[in-house]
């Protein structure tokens, strides 16, 4: 009984994680400027990966294995925050020319 409940929760969390990743990618298409796109990718993907990590935790072979899975999430978070900031700073220092946005739509 408990096993079935855990399995159902895992499936639910995995599906939610994948849905959030899909929504994050949708942000790349729906938002028109670089900075808003980064908002979508960092925040929604962070949540999606969080759900997937939660779903995988009951499958961890040991305490060390579970900690390793959580470390993957932490490393992805640090990388995503850092790269988001670097791209945002680059755009802030040298803003995108408006005509570049126009031609991207062609």
């Amino acid at each position: 009984m408990i096993e079935t409940t855990v399995f159902a929760m895992q499936v639910l969390l995995l599906v939610m994680g994948c849905l959030f990743f899909a929504v994050g990618t949708l942000g790349l298409f729906r938002f028109s400027d670089t900075l808003s796109r980064i908002h979508a990718l960092t925040k929604v993907d962070n949540l999606g990966l969080g759900f997937i990590v939660l779903a995988l935790l009951p499958l961890a072979p040991s305490l060390a294995g579970g900690l390793k899975t959580v470390l993957i999430w932490a490393a992805a978070l640090a990388a995503s925050a850092t790269s988001a900031h670097l791209i945002a700073r680059a755009v802030h220092v040298r803003p995108e020319p408006p005509e570049a946005k126009e031609s991207a739509d062609d």
Binding site: H85, A88, V91, V93
Partner: peptide, 15 residues
């Protein structure tokens, strides 16, 4: 703080 804000609702640290 700057790194955390990039992951918080609606904010992104630019500079």
């Amino acid at each position: 703080l700057a790194n955390t804000l990039s992951l918080m609702p609606g904010t992104l640290s630019a500079l």
